[in-house]
């Protein structure tokens, strides 16, 4: 038994990826989770018609961790339109004789929760029995977590499953010697990568259609926009995943090593995919999302499903995916030089 334990320890220590996975990966993931679930120092911005609001309310709001800005009566009446046009404002608080106090928020998110909570605290100090009617520009209070975050999972699984299959298949191709054998034919390196992308792309299309239709018609996930754009995004995302898997497989010599890289390559992307508003991530780390393909996919799917966006609103994200896939395609074609110079 002691020999077995000794062998396992020596073997693991000799495998740098295993050591990284055991020691570094949990710290990285815990840090990301603390960003996600920890206290945020985000200060929400709330619009209010200051000249008609009671001064005690303004004073109570200013004592909370929020910034107030003055809006006109007209802007407050059309709070939803105002919020759509002013990204920096999280909520608009309006008071009227008939409707009482109403709070219009952009969408169910960490920022909205914080804004609502600070306003509730301010109201509790003035009138604990006051009722605030909340509504959202996009989404509703009755939405389940799946309804509000379903788009993230669509993007995530479209990417992850194809990445795993293509990454492992390429490593297997290398370790089994078939890659060397096929490169000893007149096929061009670019054709090898393209062949892989098309081959797995077919499965990616089928998977994307299946996931979207199942989510919509069985799991009742709503989409404000045309699901054709969701499908297109998922297919592009899955194509990028094939190339991403191929790139990762360059650095892995076994199937296990592909799996060992998941905590460093896939899990961070989950946190930058839209689960947390990117400007809440400290030290401007939210900008890292621009180098993560899942971000482009999730942002595009969110645009269509949540905001009802069309092609002209999401084309930037789709272009991001295309550029990413092309870049990885070139990297992979160059990487094959390791196995054949021409």
């Amino acid at each position: 038994m002691i020999y077995l334990a000794g062998r396992v320890i020596r073997q693991t220590l000799n495998d740098k990826r295993s050591v990284m996975m055991i020691l570094v990966a949990p710290l990285l993931i815990l840090t990301l989770i603390s960003f996600l679930l920890g206290d945020s120092d985000y200060v929400p911005v709330v619009g209010i018609v200051k000249n008609t609001a009671p001064s005690s309310l303004i004073a109570a709001l200013e004592e909370q961790e929020l910034n107030t800005i003055d809006v006109t009566n007209n802007e407050a009446r059309h709070a939803k339109s105002y919020l759509k046009e002013h990204n920096k404002v999280d909520a608009v608080l309006t008071l009227s004789q008939d409707a009482g106090m109403s709070l219009t928020l952009y969408e169910p998110s960490t920022k909205s929760t914080k804004a609502a909570s600070e306003i509730q605290s301010a109201m509790a100090s003035l009138n604990p029995s006051a009722q605030i009617n909340s509504s959202y520009v996009y989404g509703s209070q009755n939405q389940s977590t799946f309804d509000s975050l379903g788009y993230v999972f669509l993007a995530l699984f479209a990417f992850f499953l194809v990445f795993i299959i293509s990454g492992i298949a390429l490593v297997k191709e290398r370790s089994g010697g078939t890659l060397e054998r096929l490169l000893m034919t007149p096929i061009k390196r670019a054709e090898v990568i393209l062949g892989y992308t098309i081959g797995y792309g077919v499965f990616a299309v089928v998977q994307a259609i299946l996931m979207v239709l199942y989510s919509m018609f069985v799991l009742q996930l709503d989409s404000a926009g045309n699901i054709g754009w969701v499908l297109l995004t998922m297919v592009l995302l899955a194509m990028t995943a094939v190339s991403f898997g191929a790139t990762i497989s360059i650095f892995a010599s076994s199937e296990l090593q592909v799996v060992q890289m998941i905590p460093f390559t896939i899990i961070p992307q989950v946190f930058f995919s839209g689960l947390i508003p990117l400007d809440l991530i400290p030290y401007h780390l939210g900008n890292l999302s621009y180098i993560m393909p899942i971000y482009y996919g999730a942002a595009s799917i969110k645009g269509v499903m949540v905001y009802g966006h069309g092609f002209f609103d999401i084309w930037g994200h789709l272009a991001g995916l295309v550029v990413y896939a092309c870049f990885l395609y070139l990297v992979n074609t160059q990487a094959l030089k390791k196995f054949r110079r021409l």
């Binding site: 010697g177 060397e180 000893m184």
Partner: peptide
């Protein structure tokens, strides 16, 4: 490469 046949050690 069009004129070469290659049989690797492992069956591949």
């Amino acid at each position: 490469l069009k004129k070469i046949g290659f049989m690797p050690q492992h069956n591949a």
